[in-house]
Amino acid sequence: MTFKHGGKIALAPLLGQLLATRMPIDPDCDPPLLIPVPLHRWRIWKRGFNQAALLANDLAKRGKGDVLVDGLVRRKQTPSLGGLSQEERNKALEGAIAVRRGARAQIAGRAIILVDDVLTSGATSSACVGALLDAGAANVTIACFARVASGSTSSD
């Protein structure tokens, strides 16, 4: 995807708009908390941006929730997950994702929308959802721009 790997960050508003159209918000409920899937600091340094954070910020600008860009942290560097089996992906993510210590109070009791660009195997999303639920999130919904068909070898 040229958005993530091609550095085409100008696509964020278009992708955010397309995501926003599929995200109904209940005006009688508190706005959800938008939390992007985290990247390890070395990956951000290499890429220059976190594509999920760009999408989360755009969704917040469109009134789809309150953004908490650093709600989750990737505590350890993980390899690119492309080409790995489901078991290898799960093993690579063991202990890699956690709720930032100072964010627990903001997450507890809130409806969370986990934002990502592409959902491949679901291993990364599952690790994020587990961490958010362990921190007391009321519920977690995943919002992603694309879903890779089962059997594909794209990166997660």
Rank of each mutant, 00 (worst) to 15 (best):
T2H: 08
T2I: 10
G6N: 03
G6F: 05
G7A: 08
G7F: 05
I9C: 06
I9L: 07
L11D: 12
L11F: 10
A12Y: 09
L14C: 02
L15M: 14
L15E: 02
G16R: 10
Q17D: 11
L18T: 07
M23T: 03
P24C: 10
I25Y: 01
D26S: 06
D26C: 04
D26Q: 04
D28E: 14
D28I: 01
C29T: 07
D30R: 12
D30N: 11
P32L: 08
L33K: 08
I35G: 07
P36T: 09
P36G: 06
I44T: 15
K46D: 12
K46E: 13
R47D: 09
R47F: 12
G48A: 11
N50C: 03
A53E: 15
L54S: 03
A56L: 04
N57P: 00
D58F: 00
D58W: 03
L59W: 05
L59I: 09
A60K: 03
A60T: 07
K61R: 14
R62A: 12
G63P: 10
G63E: 11
G63H: 08
K64V: 00
L68H: 04
L68A: 02
L68W: 07
L68F: 11
L72W: 08
L72C: 06
R74Q: 14
R74C: 12
R75N: 11
R75Y: 00
R75I: 07
K76V: 11
K76P: 01
K76S: 13
T78S: 09
P79T: 05
L81W: 03
G82R: 08
G82H: 10
G83N: 11
G83S: 09
Q86W: 02
Q86S: 10
R89H: 02
K91C: 02
K91H: 11
A92T: 04
A92I: 07
A92L: 02
L93D: 03
G95M: 02
A96V: 05
A96H: 04
A96E: 04
I97P: 01
A98W: 00
R100C: 08
R101V: 04
A103Y: 06
R104Y: 01
Q106Y: 02
Q106L: 12
A108E: 13
A108F: 08
A111F: 03
I112C: 08
L114A: 08
V115Q: 07
L119I: 14
L119H: 09
G122M: 07
G122L: 10
G122Y: 02
G122W: 05
A123P: 11
A123L: 11
S125F: 06
S126H: 12
A127Y: 12
G130R: 13
A131N: 06
L132V: 10
L133Y: 00
L133E: 09
D134C: 00
A135S: 13
G136L: 05
A137N: 05
A137T: 05
A137H: 03
F145E: 01
F145W: 15
F145Q: 02
F145Y: 15
R147F: 04
R147I: 13
A149E: 13
S150P: 01
S152L: 06
T153L: 14
T153P: 00
S154N: 09
D156P: 09
D156F: 03
D156R: 05
